[in-house]
Design a protein around this nucleic acid. Structure first.
Lengths: 231, 231
DNA sequence: ATAAGATAAATTGCATGCAATCTCAAGATC
DNA sequence: GATCTTGAGATTGCATGCAATTTATCTTAT
């Protein structure tokens, strides 16, 4: 998405993080007023950010009813993961054909960050687990592929947030490590198998009870507004 | 995309058609004022439509510089078609596993429409050729897959509009027919081969000179505004 | 003449106001 | 007691106005 009107950028980024880190759970309403107020801007800018999040599939906008964090149905889960397997297979094939020279290093350092966040039991770990897959896509260099993978990963996070076990945050870091190893040796089949297994594990984790009601919005928004982009 | 605020809907649909039928060529500027004026609405609604088109990849929005019909670079062409092959392969596999009972009929009737439009040398034929592939995706029933296929098809159209031969409108209708036949017999491999060949043909067609300058915008907008949704 | 600079016109970024629509609770009806 | 109606409050849809940025035009100097 090439659009960016500076003021809605910050809002977009903050909201996105809040949703992906499950601070804002599926179904939570996102009124333009509240958002505008907490960020000190008008509804116009808030609306703009919401519109972009809707394009990413992270929020639902229903006419005259406003925006809320998207609530993917259970049937969608299968769709999403099927497509995700399709796309990530393509990513791996391309990376085994041509891996940028600093690629492996970037992956390793990302996993290190995942481990750090997990040890600190930071909510970042949830988001970072997803962004590992986005990083893989980025290494292919294909803008479209990055975009599509981002979308399926985002939606997966949403599904996990809605149906998954609370804070399923171990998130298969070891599988990420195995995958890196296979990629380093250009073993496409092995890598694909690991990925397949990994995604099935994630998908299985998405088969539990509904979650408890969510806390106050204003508080969450304020927290994520003040956070800088400390990754 | 679940968003729709009634007034921008009409604008969105009209602009989309105009772009896909190559009445608005890549690079053409799309000022909010002009659009709002021709459609008798304020810039706000026009802007909203543009924002959605940007999410589809049909227009580029650069900060403080406004919107214009997207101009995919030549390097993007390869990306787009590679991903398109990946996605459409998935579509075919799914359809061979489970084809809705009226699916074949729907495809046949669509191709008939393509033929009609081609005979009348209507600009619709260009758009319909793309929408055949979207229809295929729709038959899978997967919202996400429909969405993704729509995007790659749209971008393909843009690439064809920019680099392809002028009005390359034969558009391989016969290949569409062959594909339907293979799908009817559930021959996944044959279908995939045909699709592969078909997409390569389309891609090859996207290798020519730059195009001539485009005509007046206002005129085009007015034409597409007054058109009802006669498919 | 060409290039650089200044001024004016056009266009977007953003905020705000009003009308339309939706939400939800209180009261009326069966 | 349950359902339907009514109305107030909240929230979005849309238009418009102003400031900021960009783009185009016209000087001016080399």
């Amino acid at each position: 998405m090439s659009t960016q009107q500076s003021r809605s950028d910050a809002i977009y980024a903050s909201l996105r993080r809040a949703i992906l880190e499950q601070a804002l759970k599926p179904g939570v309403k996102l009124p333009e007023d509240s958002i505008g107020d907490t960020f000190g801007v008008s509804r116009t800018s808030a609306r703009n950010a919401l519109l972009r999040l809707a394009a990413d599939g992270l929020v639902d906008i229903r006419p005259n009813r406003g925006a809320s964090v998207a609530m993917p149905a259970l049937e969608e889960a299968e769709e999403v993961f099927a497509l995700r397997r399709c796309l990530e297979r393509e990513v791996i094939e391309r990376l085994c054909r041509r891996m940028p020279k600093d690629g492996i290093d970037a992956l390793i350092s990302h996993v290190r960050e995942e481990e750090r966040a997990l040890k600190a039991s930071s909510p970042r770990s949830i988001r970072l687990a997803g962004e590992f897959h986005i990083l893989l896509a980025e290494l292919t260099g294909s803008k479209l592929l990055i975009d599509f993978v981002s979308q399926v990963v985002s939606r997966s996070s949403l599904i996990l947030a809605r149906y998954g076990r609370p804070h399923s945050a171990e998130c298969g870091i070891d599988e990420h490590i195995q995958l890196i190893e296979a990629l380093k040796n250009l073993e496409a089949n092995t890598a694909t198998d690991i990925m397949e297994h990994h995604l099935h594990a994630v998908e299985d984790r998405a088969k539990a009870h509904d979650k408890e009601a969510s806390p106050d919005i204003a508080e969450v928004l304020e927290r994520y507004r003040s956070m800088a982009d400390n990754l």
